[in-house]
């Protein structure tokens, strides 16, 4: 992939990630546990990991977090989304490149969702200076498996389709 095409792909993915994140906030989640969401932007992170390198993936994740925070809930949520986004991207990249024989994209997505929740809860505990938030973790882990499977399945189908059409040589 030449440089111009790569830049264009990065920009398209960032824009899509922002749009998906914002749309997701409009859709209510029928689950009475605070902090649970589908995490559809995870799909974009997985596409970036599958077709670009680590640096481009991190650029996409960081820019998406900053812009979404500015456009929606304000700068206070930025440490949370950055911690979750960066940690899950790093771990998913590691698993995708080092252990592809063990995990499919669905498994990688679940790992990403779990890493995301763990990072956010740890961040909340650090900010509150109390381990209180770790109390939510088991509940969040169960939802991470469910949401990870949903976004993972979508990602896997998307990656297959992109490969089939030969969009990225």
């Amino acid at each position: 992939m030449n440089r111009n095409k790569r830049d264009a792909v990065i920009i398209i993915l960032i824009c899509n990630a922002i749009l998906i994140s914002l749309l997701e906030m409009v859709v209510p989640v029928p689950i009475p546990v605070p902090g649970v969401k589908l995490g559809l932007a995870n799909i974009i992170t997985i596409l970036a990991i599958a077709f670009l390198d680590l640096k481009d993936t991190l650029i996409i994740v960081i820019l998406r977090c900053i812009i979404v925070a500015l456009l929606s809930k304000g700068i206070t949520v930025l440490p949370f989304s950055l911690a979750g986004g960066i940690l899950s991207a790093l771990i998913m990249w590691l698993v995708y490149t080092k252990l592809p024989h063990l995990f499919s994209i669905k498994g990688i997505s679940v790992i990403g969702a779990v890493a995301h929740n763990t990072a956010q809860v740890t961040m909340a505990s650090l900010i509150l200076r109390e381990a209180v938030m770790l109390y939510y973790l088991p509940m969040l882990l169960i939802f991470a498996v469910v949401t990870g499977l949903i976004t993972g399945t979508i990602s896997q189908l998307t990656v297959q389709e992109i490969n089939k059409r030969g969009i990225f040589p």
């Binding site: 252990l99 024989h101 063990l102 995990f103 499919s104 669905k106 498994g107 679940v110 790992i111 779990v114 109390y135 973790l137 088991p138 509940m139 882990l141 169960i142 991470a144 498996v145 499977l149 399945t153 896997q156 189908l157 297959q160």
Partner: peptide
Amino acid sequence: MNIPMFKTGDKILIVSILIIAVFFIGWR
């Protein structure tokens, strides 16, 4: 549209996370 099957690692991962989470909720 064919959704590929789970790999071995996926199944072990999902089952172990669920067991750990349920264990902690139950213990609490």
